[in-house]
């Protein structure tokens, strides 16, 4: 029943929602790089702080964030267990056959799990706060250098926008066609792989026919709305970086510096006590 047209967009009037989509795209890329740079747990703490602050500023309800994590929780647990059992560490706590659990293994699997969760939280922050139109416009604008070498970036953006709009429509259509064929006795979940693939034909063919029919009407509708009427197309959604974007960039940059610093243990300036070694390894 969820409206997937807007992807995950969560409408709210927050600082993050008002940021220039291009800035958000770049910041998310920077964030991803930052997550992969992180080495020790204390630096992870900084990244967690960064994501939590980002979420709070965006006014995304915590339930929404947890929901996005829920979709990957199986993957997270699975990799964590594998890492836990097969990581070869020095401080072995328990072992059996080829399996061993070590202190380093525990630390490593926690870090890997954190990395996945942080990646998802950070990137969904982008999709929660940016409309699909914002995203496509942002990408179009970031592709500007390509436009100079005659790549039709605007057409690509329109195609992306249309694709985003039609995904939910077509997925609903698949449901309808499957129901209709089931009512005629079709079965999609029995038999071997070949039989199952064959059973999909009565769904795929009507789906393609319908997609082409829609495409025909869409083509007329684009013409009716004077698509490509003038090369001097204007733009309703303007993207203009403001002081907010400057703050966001500065904030993220500060976090990156902090993470690098923590990674390097403040260039060795701080020597942790023996009992805290695990925070910095």
């Amino acid at each position: 029943m969820r409206d997937i047209t807007l992807g995950q967009y969560y409408p709210a009037d927050s600082f993050t929602h008002k940021l220039d989509p291009r800035v958000k795209l770049v910041l998310v890329i920077a964030f991803i790089v930052m997550v992969f740079l992180v080495k020790n747990l204390i630096a992870y703490a900084a990244v967690i702080l960064c994501v939590v602050l980002g979420t709070l500023i965006s006014r995304i309800p915590i339930s929404k964030v947890l929901k996005s994590i829920k979709t990957i929780i199986f993957l997270v647990l699975f990799t964590a267990v594998l890492n836990l059992l097969f990581y070869k560490g020095d401080t072995v706590l328990w072992s059996w056959w080829r399996i061993s659990v070590s202190l380093e293994g525990i630390l490593f699997s926690i870090k890997m799990a954190l990395r996945l969760i942080l990646l998802v939280m950070g990137t969904t922050l982008l999709t929660y706060t940016t409309t699909p139109t914002g995203l496509t416009d942002g990408m179009e604008s970031l592709m500007y250098p390509l436009k100079l070498i005659k790549v039709p970036t605007h057409d690509i953006a329109v195609i992306m926008s249309i694709a985003l709009r039609f995904i939910p429509i077509l997925s609903e259509e698949v449901d309808k066609i499957m129901m209709a064929q089931k009512a005629r006795g079709a079965s999609f979940d029995t038999g071997g792989i070949v039989k199952r693939a064959k059973a999909l034909l009565p769904v795929l063919i009507p789906l393609f026919v319908s997609a082409f029919r829609r495409a025909d009407e869409l083509a007329l509708a684009l013409d009716a709305r004077c698509y490509n009427a003038t090369p001097n197309r204007t733009r309703y959604q303007i993207m203009k970086p403001t002081y907010r974007d400057l703050i966001a960039v500065a904030g993220t940059a500060a976090f990156i510096v902090l993470v690098v610093a923590l990674n390097m243990n403040f260039w060795g300036a701080y020597v942790p006590s023996e009992s805290l070694w695990w925070l910095f390894s």
């Binding site: 309808k176 066609i177 209709a180 089931k182 006795g185 009565p202 009507p206």
Partner: peptide, 20 residues
């Protein structure tokens, strides 16, 4: 299968289910 043979169902715009 037996149930669906007995209870036929015609959806809205059934022409969209033609495929063969």
């Amino acid at each position: 299968t037996a149930l669906r043979k007995q209870v036929g169902m015609l959806f809205q715009f059934p022409e969209y289910q033609l495929f063969d």
